Amino acid sequence: MQAMYMAAATATGGRNGQVKSDNGVLDLEVRMPKALGGANDDFTNPEQIFAAGYAACFDSALNLVIKQLKVKTGETAVTAKVSLGALGEGRFGLGVALEINIPDVSAEQAQTLAERAHQVCPYSNALKNNVEVTLAITNSQYA
């Protein structure tokens, strides 16, 4: 792979610490969520940050595919739900469920566009064969 861009962030204190990007734009306190034994859910955590990045990246890939195929849609939206779980033997893993909304297209076309975006998205390609990623079309109305 030939790198087109590189981002960097530094974490201190692990799940009860601070994360900061190299340019300082991202500068967040992170805390263990209540479900994992933390005190409260008033702070972000690594899974939320990962979910935000994946959702934004997948939505960009989706819009690239839509543009390349010259499909007319409404504004798309992607929600990434990231699960953290035990794999056994002291190991942990992630699972991802992507909820994809592509207005003004048929259910079949939405599914096709989502599957193509899944082939294009760098996050999807990084997780392939390692993390279970499910795609669900959530359109409330189809064309």
Rank of each mutant, 00 (worst) to 15 (best):
P46E: 09
N101R: 15
Q2M: 12
T12I: 08
V65E: 06
G17V: 03
V105I: 08
I137D: 04
A107F: 00
A56M: 11
T138F: 02
A143R: 15
Q111W: 04
G17D: 03
T10Q: 11
E108G: 05
F92M: 14
D104T: 10
A126I: 11
E29Q: 15
G93N: 06
L69T: 13
L127F: 12
A56S: 15
E115S: 09
C57F: 07
L113G: 08
G90K: 12
K20C: 07
L135E: 13
V105G: 04
A77P: 03
I102N: 03
S140D: 13
V25S: 14
D59I: 04
A77H: 10
Q18H: 15
G17Q: 07
V133D: 03
N101F: 00
A80K: 13
I49K: 04
T112C: 01
A52R: 11
E132G: 00
I49E: 06
V71T: 12
Y123G: 09
G85W: 01
S106V: 05
V30F: 02
A110L: 04
K128I: 00
T134F: 01
Y142R: 01
L84A: 12
A86N: 14
A11M: 03
V30T: 14
N63L: 05
D104L: 11
Y142S: 01
E89F: 01
G13I: 13
T79Q: 12
Q2N: 15
R15T: 07
S83K: 14
I102K: 02
E47I: 06
G37I: 11
D27T: 09
V120H: 09
Q48G: 10
A9P: 05
G74D: 09
G37S: 05
S21R: 00
L87S: 06
L87T: 09
Q2C: 07
K81A: 13
S83V: 12
C57T: 13
A86G: 09
A56V: 12
I137L: 01
N63K: 14
A107G: 02
Q109M: 14
L84Q: 10
A51L: 10
N16V: 12
F92V: 14
L26C: 03
A80V: 03
A126K: 12
I49M: 11
V131K: 01
Y142L: 00
V65M: 01
A7W: 09
T134E: 06
G17C: 02
N139K: 13
T112P: 00
A56Y: 11
N40R: 11
A97K: 14
D42K: 14
R15Q: 03
N101S: 15
E99P: 01
E99A: 10
L36V: 08
L94A: 07
A114D: 05
A3F: 05
T73F: 00
A35F: 00
A8I: 14
L113H: 10
